[in-house]
Simulated scan of single mutants.
Amino acid sequence: MAGNGSDPLAPYEEDGPYTTTRHSGGLGCTIYRPRNLGSNHPLIVWGNGTGGTPTTYGSGLEHWASWGFVVAAANTSNAGSGDEMLDCIDYLQSSSYAGNIDFSKIGASGHSQGGGGTIMAGRDARITATAPVQPYILGLGHQTSSQYQQHAPMLLLSGSLDTLAGPTLNQAPVFSRVDVPVFWATLNGASHFEPVGDFGDYKAMTTAWWLYQLSGDSDAASLFTGACSACGLSDWDVERKGL
Rank of each mutant, 00 (worst) to 15 (best):
F183C: 01
T186P: 03
W209K: 09
T186Y: 10
G200S: 12
V180E: 05
D201F: 10
A185M: 05
E194L: 10
D201H: 15
V178A: 02
V196F: 10
D198F: 05
V180Y: 04
V182K: 04
V196I: 13
A185Q: 06
D179P: 03
F183K: 01
D198P: 01
F199I: 04
V180T: 01
Y202V: 07
R177W: 01
V180H: 03
N188C: 05
Y202Q: 12
P181Y: 02
S191D: 15
G200C: 07
T207M: 15
T206M: 14
E194K: 05
F183M: 03
V178H: 06
S191H: 07
P195N: 12
E194A: 02
D201C: 08
W184N: 06
M205K: 07
D201I: 00
D198T: 04
L187Y: 09
V196D: 14
R177L: 00
A190S: 13
E194H: 08
A190M: 09
F183T: 00
G189Y: 06
A204N: 13
T186N: 15
G200A: 13
T206C: 06
H192G: 13
M205I: 15
A208S: 10
G197R: 14
Y202N: 11
F193N: 14
G197K: 15
A190K: 06
T186R: 12
R177S: 00
M205V: 12
V180D: 05
P195Y: 15
F193K: 08
A204C: 09
G200W: 13
S191I: 04
K203Y: 08
T186I: 01
T207G: 13
F199M: 05
A204H: 11
T206R: 10
F193W: 11
S191G: 09
A190E: 06
L187C: 07
N188L: 09
V196E: 13
V178G: 01
V196Y: 12
W184H: 11
V178F: 06
A204E: 09
K203M: 08
T207Q: 14
K203C: 04
N188K: 11
E194N: 05
F183A: 02
A204Q: 09
G189D: 06
M205P: 01
V182P: 04
T207V: 08
R177E: 01
W184L: 02
D201V: 08
F199Y: 14
F199C: 03
D198G: 08
P195V: 08
D198A: 14
A208D: 06
D201G: 13
G200I: 09
G197P: 11
F183R: 00
S191A: 07
V182G: 01
K203H: 09
Y202W: 14
E194V: 03
M205G: 01
G189R: 09
A208K: 10
L187M: 07
W184Y: 11
A204G: 15
P195Q: 11
P195H: 13
V178P: 07
V182M: 03
D201Y: 15
A204I: 07
W184A: 04
K203D: 04
W209L: 03
N188D: 08
V196R: 14
F183P: 00
T207Y: 11
F199L: 10
V182N: 00
